Simulated assay, not measured.
Amino acid sequence: MSNIRFSLSSPDLQEGHFMAKDQEFDGFGCSGANISPALNWQNAPEGTKSFAVTVFDPDAPTCSGFWHWLVSDIPAAATGLPRGAGKGSLPPGSRSFTNDYGSKDFGGACPPEGHGMHRYQFTVWALPEETLPAPDGASAAVVGFMLNAMALAKATLTATYAR
């Protein structure tokens, strides 16, 4: 068995560090560029047939966190997503789900002013099927459930943000 682990990295984010204004949402009182960061993954497990990417804020004052981005059916040949892919330039065959802003695009950080530091969990999921078995209109909670139920592996990079 290999000791090489499935991993996620980004030239735009550092584990545990503050995100740039580029990754802040443009709306809801925020004025960022709303640009998804570049994401790169390595060492997917054997049997991976597709990937999914999610961005989740567990610190949002909602009782259920806040989903910022949900993408599935990313082809198994992919090794990442380029900066800005969250504005509709995903690999062919990829599928986006509605985030908690009501959009299928990347929705950047926008924690309430004075609410303190929030964590943003950028996760790539290695999946054993080419298509996530969730309907196109599935809620973020259903997508998250399906990902957790079937993932071969996942890798997370957690960045922070506050206003």
Results as ranks from 00 to 15, higher is better:
Met1Glu: 15
Ser2Asn: 11
Asn3Pro: 03
Asn3Asp: 15
Phe6Ala: 04
Ser9Cys: 07
Asp12Ile: 03
Gln14Thr: 15
Gln14Ile: 11
Glu15Ser: 12
Gly16Lys: 01
His17Lys: 13
Phe18Leu: 12
Met19Ile: 12
Lys21Val: 12
Lys21Arg: 12
Asp22Thr: 12
Asp22Tyr: 04
Gln23Arg: 12
Glu24Val: 10
Gly27Ser: 10
Phe28Gln: 14
Ser31Leu: 10
Gly32Cys: 07
Ile35Trp: 05
Ile35Phe: 04
Ser36Lys: 00
Pro37Cys: 04
Pro37Ile: 05
Ala38Pro: 05
Ala38Leu: 06
Asn40His: 14
Trp41Tyr: 03
Trp41Gly: 03
Gln42Ala: 14
Gln42Met: 11
Gln42Pro: 04
Asn43Ala: 13
Pro45Lys: 02
Glu46Lys: 07
Glu46Gly: 01
Gly47Val: 00
Gly47Asp: 02
Thr48Ala: 03
Thr48Glu: 07
Phe51Ile: 00
Phe51Asp: 04
Ala52Pro: 08
Val53Asp: 10
Val55Ile: 15
Phe56Trp: 13
Pro58Asp: 09
Pro58Ile: 05
Asp59Thr: 10
Cys63Thr: 14
Cys63Asn: 15
Gly65Tyr: 06
Phe66Ala: 02
His68Glu: 13
Trp69Ile: 00
Leu70Asn: 01
Val71Trp: 02
Ser72Gly: 11
Asp73Lys: 00
Ile74Asn: 04
Pro75Arg: 03
Ala76Asn: 06
Ala78Met: 15
Thr79Asp: 14
Thr79Phe: 08
Thr79His: 12
Gly80His: 03
Leu81Ala: 04
Ala85Phe: 05
Lys87His: 15
Lys87Gln: 15
Ser89Ile: 09
Leu90Thr: 05
Gly93Ala: 08
Arg95Trp: 07
Ser96Trp: 00
Thr98Val: 15
Asn99His: 10
Asp100Pro: 00
Tyr101Gln: 11
Ser103Asn: 15
Ser103Ile: 03
Lys104Gln: 15
Asp105Gln: 08
Phe106Ala: 03
Phe106Ser: 07
Gly107Thr: 09
Gly108Ala: 05
Gly108Arg: 00
Ala109Tyr: 06
Ala109Arg: 00
Cys110Ser: 10
Cys110Lys: 00
Pro111Asp: 09
Pro112Arg: 06
Pro112Leu: 11
Glu113Gln: 14
Gly114Lys: 05
Gly114Ser: 07
His115Glu: 14
Gly116Cys: 06
Gly116Leu: 05
Met117Asp: 14
His118Glu: 11
His118Ile: 08
Arg119Gly: 10
Arg119Lys: 10
Tyr120Cys: 05
Gln121Tyr: 01
Val124Tyr: 09
Ala126Trp: 02
Ala126Tyr: 04
Leu127Trp: 06
Leu127Thr: 02
Pro128Leu: 07
Glu130Ala: 11
Glu130Met: 08
Thr131Ser: 09
Pro133Phe: 05
Ala134Cys: 14
Ala134Glu: 13
Pro135Gln: 09
Pro135Tyr: 06
Gly137Ile: 02
Gly137Val: 04
Ala138Leu: 01
Ala138Val: 00
Ser139Leu: 09
Ala141Tyr: 09
Val142Arg: 03
Val142Ala: 09
Gly144Leu: 04
Phe145Ile: 01
Met146Pro: 02
Met146Tyr: 10
Ala151His: 13
Leu157Val: 08
Thr158Val: 15
Thr158Tyr: 06
Ala159Ser: 13
Ala159Asn: 00
Thr160Trp: 04
Ala162Gln: 13
Arg163Asn: 14
Arg163Trp: 14
